[in-house]
Amino acid sequence: MGTINVGGKELEVDEEGYLSNLADWTPEVAEYMAKDEGQDLTENHWEVINFLREYYEEYQIAPAVRVLTKAIGKKLGKEKGNSKYLYELFPYGPGKQACKYAGLPKPTGCV
């Protein structure tokens, strides 16, 4: 276990940088994690992050990439519901990286 300091608050993270306590998440946490990995979050990133948070709230699970891609396609349109688009936004893996920024646990099936 480690910690990150966001806005003067120490937040616990696991060995891969995922928040230990989902309630600690704020948009500032997402920005911090993205900057730490050399990324700036755009409106398109936020669409996916917010989608993941809503999905998690409804199903209590982070979706695997295949499920994520399909569900995003249904909600945001075909041009956004494909692996190429999602990997452009989240090059370390749309499920893994986007869930991390969204303050969610690592999706099942992610190595």
Rank of each mutant, 00 (worst) to 15 (best):
M1F: 09
G2F: 07
T3P: 00
N5D: 11
K9G: 06
K9A: 10
K9Q: 06
E10I: 01
L11D: 07
L11W: 03
D14G: 06
D14Q: 02
G17Y: 03
S20Y: 14
S20H: 10
N21F: 06
N21E: 12
A23Y: 07
A23K: 09
A23T: 14
D24S: 11
D24F: 03
W25Q: 07
W25I: 03
T26M: 02
T26I: 00
A30M: 08
A30S: 15
A30W: 04
E31G: 00
Y32N: 01
K35Q: 14
D36S: 08
E37S: 12
D40R: 01
D40M: 11
D40H: 05
L41G: 11
T42V: 01
N44E: 15
E47I: 01
L52T: 10
L52F: 01
R53D: 10
E54L: 00
Y55N: 10
E58T: 15
Q60F: 08
A62I: 07
R66T: 09
R66H: 04
R66M: 12
V67M: 14
V67F: 00
K70C: 05
A71Y: 03
I72Q: 08
K75T: 12
K75R: 15
L76M: 10
K78V: 08
G81V: 09
Y85V: 04
L86I: 08
Y87C: 03
Y87M: 06
L89S: 00
F90E: 07
Y92H: 14
Y92R: 13
G93V: 12
G95T: 06
Q97G: 02
Q97E: 14
C99P: 08
K100H: 05
K100E: 09
Y101L: 14
Y101C: 08
A102C: 04
P105W: 02
T108P: 00
G109W: 07
C110L: 03
V111Y: 11
